[in-house]
Simulated scan of single mutants.
Amino acid sequence: MPKTVQIRDLDDDVYAGLVRRAAEAGTSVPELLRVEAARLAARPSVEEWLQRTRRRSSTLDRRQVLDALDEQRGGWPGAGR
């Protein structure tokens, strides 16, 4: 059965931002919040995500990862002067 949530004491600027975002999406504030609440509930918490990613094994060592990132990003500013 659907549940109702009431949020009290929203700052005016927060509510204005919600109204703006709802208008941009062509929807109402309650519908925007319903969609965002569903999206938030479907995502893992930071702790859950960290636990999952810690379990992954890799054939790369730390140095290889850092070298690959450096290659993609380019050299450090000021390096090699």
Rank of each mutant, 00 (worst) to 15 (best):
R55D: 05
V46L: 15
A38M: 11
G75K: 08
R20I: 04
S57L: 13
D9N: 15
M1Q: 05
R8T: 01
P44I: 15
R81L: 11
R63S: 11
A38K: 13
E24F: 06
P30S: 14
D70P: 00
R63H: 07
D61G: 08
L33G: 00
V65N: 02
T59N: 10
R56D: 02
T53C: 12
A38R: 12
L10S: 02
W49A: 12
Q6L: 13
P44S: 06
A25G: 04
R39G: 01
L18E: 08
A22I: 02
S58A: 10
V35P: 00
R20M: 09
D67G: 06
A42F: 06
A79D: 14
D13V: 13
T27L: 07
L32A: 04
Q51R: 15
G78L: 11
S57A: 07
A23E: 14
G80T: 04
R8P: 00
R55Q: 11
L33T: 02
V19G: 00
D70A: 14
R34E: 12
E48H: 03
G74Y: 08
R62K: 08
R39Y: 07
M1R: 10
K3N: 03
Q6S: 12
V19I: 10
L69Q: 08
V46I: 15
G74A: 02
R63M: 14
L40H: 09
A23G: 08
A79K: 08
A79V: 06
D11W: 04
G75A: 14
L32R: 01
D12Q: 03
V46T: 12
T4S: 11
R52C: 01
G74K: 01
A16K: 14
K3E: 13
V19N: 03
Q64G: 05
R8K: 13
R54I: 00
K3T: 13
V5C: 00
Q64V: 04
S28L: 03
G75R: 14
A41S: 15
R55L: 13
D13K: 12
G75H: 08
R73M: 11
R81H: 11
V29L: 02
A16D: 12
P2V: 12
L10V: 03
A23I: 06
R8D: 02
D61P: 01
L66T: 05
